[in-house]
Amino acid sequence: MSTANVAMQVGRTTRRAVLGGLSACVVAPGAMAGPAAWEGVPAVAALLAGVEPRRDGLALQLPALTEDGSSVNVTVVAESPMTADDHIATLHLFAPRNPSPEVAAFHLAPGLGRAEISTRIRLNESQTVIAVARTNKGEVRLAAREVTVTTTGCLVPSDQTTAGVMQEPRVRVGPSLPAEVRTIIDHPMETGLRQDSAGRPVPERIVREVIATAGETILLRAELFRSVAANPYLRFFVDGQAPVELQVTWVEDTGARVSATVQVPAA
């Protein structure tokens, strides 16, 4: 494997701020319970729009037990040939008992070669995490998995401080095909639900989009919300049938952008 040759263009320097890795502890009202209770989650119900989802062909991988709700690994995998005619078009991730249930929405193009995305998310408390996939033909699938959070992300004291700027993008491409791409960038993902040490509310400041392009083609567009963990991490695949220059761009809610470019397959 080779580490990406990273080209950085920082659009704008934001002010220095204290790390906001931890969201305020607000329990979502009407929190769901029971195995098939996603109907009680308005954001999921709105997405399903009355369609009964298939319960196969989509897997949600999460640790059954986590002791740190501020950063939990999650992988969503859908069975799909990922061809122009038949591919997963969107993947949505929900954490219904978080202050805002929507975690991320991924828009996928066939050129990814594989419908598999990993990221790291915040979980306020034990809950059933939900993934919803939609194919280009409109078929809907749903997967759910219960996670026990034994120490909430809210209560873990952090001594770390990170500059409030978006910086140090890293991209790594794996040697086999489809090529595994791992990306990360330094960013506090400030939730807007936290107070600083003086008791003042810290405004929301997040990376709202990560876009991976090959030339003119957008392969992946990830919409991130405040339930994505600090230093947003994204892992996905690129089919690599033809060598491409992959550009990954992170977009902050201020409009600031940072990009990095790598070769796939890795040189």
Binding site: D68, S158, D159, Q160, A230
Partner: peptide, 12 residues
């Protein structure tokens, strides 16, 4: 493999 650890500030 973690961003935070037990008694971190005291150790560092």
């Amino acid at each position: 493999a973690k961003d935070q650890f037990s008694k971190q500030g005291l150790f560092t």
